[in-house]
């Protein structure tokens, strides 16, 4: 057996795009600086040379037009991968995503599904301040007609794009900015990666940590600290934010009977709120303690590192929340 390949999240994402371009001539990538520049986060570096300008298309700074053009190209029989630099800029294309991509299949009575994939970087952690650090996954995840995923692992970074392109529906793929440099092992074959379904990232018995995206690794760090105290945390990586996989979450909650939801979104109207409510609706009597949430503080993300760290749902806050939930003194 050969040793697993150790690569970065960035490289895994690029491999996913490259494999999609090789596998299907209908696939093309477009977005700001994806070509000559090589991608704002260097995800598409080298792809222009390999695939040419027709399939690696630099766009003007016109989020609404090029996202809409991606929707139109999907309607016209292609399989566009549209890169919006970050979720912050995607707000300029919100009309096309929410009013068009999400509605056309339904409004047309099923005649016009929209198989477009829209990738965007998300999240904080790189001192980029309030306009470059949003986590707005919950906004998109609230819209029927969209599918929303967030790969948090190396395997998912490579494999979920393929699964997204196989879907006949519009899929938003969130890529956490803080994970691009993360290294890990590529273990699963891309064709075995599913678009839907949560995954138990770490099995445990004392408490369930439900999370997604970059917060997966905050939970992993917290679980290591908790383990030293004999607290055995189970971590559920949601992977898909719409649809949500209630069954995997509930199975874990029934096992551990305690749950902390860790979400980089703001607490108010967050995915954490939605998940918590689903647990209450379906597993209230399985709980031994109130559901707890660790979310981003309700402030625009500040620039200085110590304040940014304080705003985010870091491992220390997760650890102290779990301890409090289990009745341990800090």
């Amino acid at each position: 057996m050969t040793a697993p390949a150790r690569i970065t999240y960035r490289e895994a994402t690029k491999q996913g795009i490259r494999e999609a371009l090789l596998a299907d001539p209908r696939v093309f990538l477009m977005g700001e600086d994806v070509g000559k520049y090589g991608g704002c986060f260097a995800v598409s570096k080298g792809l222009l040379d390999e695939f040419g300008e027709e399939r690696i298309r630099d766009t003007p700074l016109s989020e609404s037009a090029f996202v809409g053009a991606g929707i139109g190209a999907a309607l016209g029989g292609l399989r566009p991968v549209v890169e919006v630099m970050t979720v912050n800029f995607s707000l300029l294309a919100l009309d096309q995503i929410v009013n068009t991509a999400a509605t056309l299949c339904h409004m047309s009575g099923g005649q016009f599904p929209v198989p477009v994939v829209i990738r965007m970087a998300t999240g904080a952690g790189r001192q980029l301040a309030a306009q470059h650090s949003h986590s707005l996954e919950a906004w998109y995840a609230s819209v029927p007609g969209l599918r929303v995923v967030e790969p948090a692992t190396i395997d998912d970074a490579r494999g979920m794009l393929r699964a997204a392109l196989a879907s006949p529906d519009p899929v938003i793929v969130f890529e956490p900015i803080s994970l691009y440099n993360m290294e890990g092992d590529l273990t699963a074959a891309a064709e075995n990666v599913q678009l839907e379904g949560a995954r138990v990232h770490r099995a445990g018995s004392s408490v369930t940590l439900v999370t997604y995206g970059a917060s997966l690794w905050r939970c992993v760090a917290a679980a290591e600290v908790l383990a030293r105290d004999g607290i055995d945390a189970e971590i559920v990586d949601l992977r898909s934010l719409r649809p949500l996989d209630d069954a995997t979450v509930l199975d874990s909650v029934r096992k551990t009977r305690r749950v902390v939801i860790v979400d980089e979104g703001w607490r108010t109207c967050s995915l954490a709120a939605e998940i918590g409510q689903r647990i209450v609706e379906q597993g209230f009597y399985d709980l031994d303690a109130p559901i707890a949430r660790v979310c981003t503080e309700e402030v625009p993300i500040p620039y200085p590192k110590h304040l940014e760290d304080a705003a985010l749902p870091g491992p220390e806050r997760i650890v102290s929340t779990v301890r409090r939930l289990l009745g341990h003194a800090d």
Partner: peptide, 18 residues
């Protein structure tokens, strides 16, 4: 949505061209 159809037409044109 006023103006919302224009990007779609651009994309449909792009599909024909490609």
């Amino acid at each position: 949505i006023v103006g919302g159809g224009l990007p779609l037409a651009v994309g449909l044109g792009l599909a024909e061209k490609l």
